[in-house]
Write a protein that binds this DNA or RNA. Structure first.
Lengths: 356, 356
DNA sequence: ATTAGCACTCATAATATATGAGTGCTAATT
DNA sequence: AATTAGCACTCATATATTATGAGTGCTAAT
């Protein structure tokens, strides 16, 4: 059995390539093992099913196809998908509808995180699969502002060095005179400046301990809210259950449980995502990653550098049978869009956001 | 067949009551039709299964129990559940763990909506079911403030008459001199004051049309973001898929699809929720509501008045087989907690939030 | 009024028996 | 030498067939 990416590279002849592509695409489409007759019907030049069978047998022998059982059609192996993704897959152009959807729904939301979250939403909706978003930032707090909204409501705004903004509304029990506001502001600035956004609630906890006596009602409340509101898990799942339920892979409930369990465990996903290439789109198929629990699934993701201090991976998790072509082109388009938003490229007329 | 809530009220003797309660509770617990032997085993005074069978038969005749098929045990009918909820259900006291969880996780978040959303989260987590939250507010915008966060980032804060606060971060392409800030502020206040929060994006759209020439980059952006961020559907679902998958009712995927479809269609849920009593806990079982699509499900919900202008319904949707006792006691505890937060009751030491 | 006894029902499980899609191989055809 | 018709073979799935047993309702005895 020859290795495709390894010592000896198997060069497939055109007919084998065409047949492999057809098997992959038919299987992605139908979720049923693909038989020789089906391929013969779809093959442009007339060849008999018998010939196709011979070819398919060879494709199986070199490890590109698999048979669920002896009298079934063929299903792509991980290696088969890989060869398809690397060599056979045409780069699909997205429909105008999809492009519009991307441009209209991914816009700058002032905060890097919110923008990326919307991007993840968009990816999830377009591909009908749960999206994973993993933001890594080394941003630190640069400035804290306090705004008195009303007698008993304060708005506390935290600005980071790269322009990220987070804010929390804090309700206090007794109103605060102007002078004390200034004091609170100085105190927060002194204590929080330089704190990595990731550690915000920890740092705040320290502030509470140190300065509680002075502003007990505010600090306590704030620490509590920050913990709940800002300290969300870094690995976000944007999901849409209905679309998963529609996949034949998930006709039985146990498979859904297994999948959700894997997808919701950020350690599992991150272990894989941490190894992908910077600023590029990665396709990781089945057991190509060494995470046993992910062996039946694929991750297709984009690594994106938003600012000097913030980067993210954004992608989808799905069964191995997935429309790689559409997924990759969608992520490419999202990448282009994000680049524009974060100023990595000149804005051009065509890609600019349309007002509707 | 006698009507329980109708003209003729069936008075059950103690033994029948006890048996009905046992059937309901066993069925809620096991999800399997309950047989006479099982009841006999759990019944405190020794009675034979044969006697139980006679009683069960009568309970079936008056419409409190049903048989899936002739040789199966009994399952409570809608009427049976109803009688149980109204007359037989002891009011369970929640565990200290649950009470603590409620007190620690439902706190004031400055905005009524956020607070209620957290409450919905808590209810969903405690009961392992999707929670529905439906907030009705007649609040209007009272004041708009603009804060320059940095050269190109503005924070726009909208305050309502009852102290609700919403804010959006807007990124602009060209920085704005101080004088123009004031102009923008006046303009927004003039145009938005008095706008019901519900119509915000519509009103903003008008502003954009009218005043676009002056502040095109800001207004456009703002309208866009408001539409996406604030104009979320009023009927929120807080859900936890895994817990649903664990229910035997949802062992087959189609049932899940049906359920999710119903639960995610806010019109269906609202049609029922709009009829429940103000400031009270309602239990609506199966076809008691006239929504055919909800006939296999129950809604247990709390109507809560948060401020003069804002009220909400908060509850759970589930298969008819659900722990009514725990659901009702949880909502009661949540109600108490919310009352304290929204100042409807004196705070007391015991229920006060604990710092951990 | 209660209950032991027993025939009866019917969902579920276990088993046996088609059906047919798809294969691999051989031998004939191009 | 490459292709393909022909055919026996495999095995998942569907259908039919037959236990199994939990639970009932009724009758007659307690």
């Amino acid at each position: 059995m020859l290795k495709y990416k390894g010592e000896n590279i198997m060069e497939l002849d055109d007919r084998k390539k065409k047949i492999l592509a057809l098997v992959v695409e038919n299987y992605i489409e139908s979720a049923e093992p693909v038989g020789s007759k089906q391929i013969a019907d779809n093959y442009e030049n007339d060849i008999s099913p018998a010939t196709i069978r011979n070819e398919m047998k060879q494709l199986e022998e070199i490890g590109f196809l698999e048979q669920p059982h002896i009298s079934a059609g063929r299903v792509p192996s991980t290696l088969g998908y890989r060869y398809y993704v690397d060599n056979l897959m045409s780069n699909n152009t997205l429909s105008m509808v999809d492009i519009d959807y991307i441009n209209n729904n991914i816009v700058s939301y002032g905060s890097v995180e919110k923008t990326l979250e919307h991007a993840a939403d968009v990816v999830s909706k377009l591909l009908n699969l749960p999206a994973v978003l993993n933001i890594k930032t080394t941003d630190v707090v640069e400035n804290v502002k306090i705004l008195k909204i009303s007698e008993k409501i304060l708005l506390i705004i935290l600005m980071s060095n790269s322009g990220n903004v987070k804010d929390v509304i804090v309700q206090i029990t007794d109103s605060l005179p102007e002078t004390r506001m200034d004091e609170l502001s100085r105190l927060l600035n002194k204590n929080l400046k330089g704190t990595p956004l990731e550690n915000l609630s920890l740092a705040l906890n320290d502030v509470v301990k140190k300065e509680l006596s002075k502003f007990s009602n505010i600090l306590n409340e704030m620490e509590h809210i920050v913990r709940k509101e800002l300290d969300e898990p870094k690995n976000n799942m944007k999901g849409n259950m209905e679309s998963l339920l529609a996949l034949p892979e998930f006709s039985n409930t146990n498979e859904i449980k297994k999948f959700l369990n894997v997808v919701n465990t950020k350690e599992i996903i991150n272990e894989v995502l941490n190894k992908i290439d910077k600023d590029d789109i990665s396709v990781i198929i089945g057991n190509e990653n060494n995470q046993m629990l992910l062996k039946d699934y694929s991750l297709i993701s984009l690594d994106f550098t938003a600012t000097d201090t913030t980067s993210a991976t954004l992608g989808i998790v799905s069964p191995k049978r997935v429309d790689y072509k559409k997924a990759v082109s969608t992520l490419k388009a999202v990448n282009d869009r994000l680049k524009k938003i974060f100023g990595k490229e000149k804005e051009d007329k065509d890609g600019a956001r349309k007002e509707d």
